[in-house]
């Protein structure tokens, strides 16, 4: 079980969080993106062996969404969000 650092609540058990998936490309302007660009945005989700930025939601806590960088092999959390209060 991961120990995840919420910017407000600090280190909490993974069970308090909802996984929001890896951080993909930004949502392109739908009026300008080509069909290919749009489909890529929807379907090309990063899935590396190693560090990945991903979103977590402190659903059973303060309700904050934030991004961490986690190594998918070792589970080491390499970057945590800036603390807030």
């Amino acid at each position: 079980m991961l120990l995840i650092k919420c910017p407000f609540c600090k280190n909490r058990n993974e069970t308090e969080f909802v996984y929001g998936g890896p951080v993909g490309a930004n949502r392109p302007d739908p009026t300008r993106a080509s069909d290919e660009e749009w489909v890529d945005f929807l379907t090309m989700v990063p899935n590396p062996t190693g560090p990945v930025h991903e979103r977590w939601w402190h659903a059973r806590g303060c309700g904050e969404w934030f991004i961490i960088c986690r190594d998918t092999v070792t589970h080491e959390i390499l970057e945590t969000p800036i603390e807030k209060s």
Binding site: N26, R27, W57
Partner: peptide, 15 residues
């Protein structure tokens, strides 16, 4: 309601 809440909060946080 929980997943709609998640959906809305996520858009506001990131997009």
């Amino acid at each position: 309601s929980d997943s709609v809440n998640q959906h809305m909060q996520k858009i506001l946080a990131f997009d």
